[in-house]
């Protein structure tokens, strides 16, 4: 009789504790472990690149400001989402995202495909939104253009990322600070190296419109501009109306 068994169980604190652990562990193990063993969970995308140091710094600002509280980065497999935002998101697109930023609330629109949608200046203007869209309830992020970006410790950031599996090369780590500066300073000596290291499609610009300094706005816009553009995989065999974005510049 199960009940009698339970009467016994509930007289032993240790037994009860062990039972709880056993019963509560099953679900998580069955659902999480196979995500590492079933290969098709994360699609193949040979053209997938890692974030440049500047983009990574921008991602950290995105996290810091809590943009994920209002914006998802996940186009679901639903007709209206694909038609509004673009091809549905693939798992591989967030393969290097520690942590992922799929979000759980859309007070603002999805941002998974916002990269390349607007000019840099348009993007930075969106960050003081009511000047352009009076209906918006997004906070104004004016301080981002005032704060200069902290870039000296970017090598440490890349190293930490490498430790958890993001394939940054030794060279990338060593030059992280210079690359961050270069990507936001077109024409500088460091600028061309960025493309060399991260691929010809990497955008090198004065993202905030001012070439002489590297601000937090530079980093954030660089990150927003690369959203959905680390790989073209999502554009390949989906019936989405769009074509893959052409390389810029």
């Amino acid at each position: 009789m199960p009940e009698l068994f339970h009467r016994k169980l509930e007289r032993s604190a240790i037994g009860f504790v062990l039972a709880i652990i056993a019963v509560a562990s099953v679900g998580g193990i069955v659902e999480i472990a196979p995500l590492f063993t079933i290969d098709e969970t994360v699609e193949e995308a040979p053209d997938m690149r890692v974030y440049t140091p500047l983009e990574l710094a921008g991602r950290n600002i995105y996290i810091r400001e809590g943009c994920y509280a209002c914006h998802s980065q996940m186009v679901r497999t639903l007709r209206d989402e694909v038609e509004r935002y673009g091809p549905y998101s693939l798992a591989v697109e967030s393969k290097y995202d520690h942590p992922m930023l799929w979000g759980s609330k859309r007070t603002g629109p999805d941002l998974a495909r916002v990269g390349g949608k607007y000019s840099d200046f348009g993007m930075s203007r969106i960050l003081s939104p009511r000047e352009v869209v009076p209906e918006s309830n997004m906070p104004a992020y004016r301080w981002l253009a005032r704060n200069s970006l902290k870039i000296e410790d970017l090598p440490l950031h890349l190293e930490a990322q490498r430790a958890i599996g993001v394939p940054y090369s030794e060279e990338m780590i060593e030059n992280a600070t210079r690359d961050a500066y270069g990507q936001a300073s077109p024409g500088s000596d460091s600028a061309s190296n960025v493309k060399e290291r991260y691929g010809a499609e990497t955008q090198v610009r004065a993202f905030d419109g001012v070439a002489t300094n590297v601000t937090e706005m530079d980093a954030l816009v660089a990150y927003l501009q690369v959203l959905g553009r680390l790989t073209d995989a999502a554009f390949e065999d989906t019936a989405a109306p769009e074509e893959p974005p052409e390389p810029i510049e």
Partner: peptide, 25 residues
């Protein structure tokens, strides 16, 4: 993994789809 012991910032060991599952688990 913290960026260093002197940084408040850390990077979650999980990434992408596995991170999503762990997070919502």
């Amino acid at each position: 993994i913290p960026v260093s012991l002197g940084h408040a910032k850390s990077y979650t060991v999980w990434s992408g789809v596995q991170d999503a599952m762990v997070q919502w688990w």
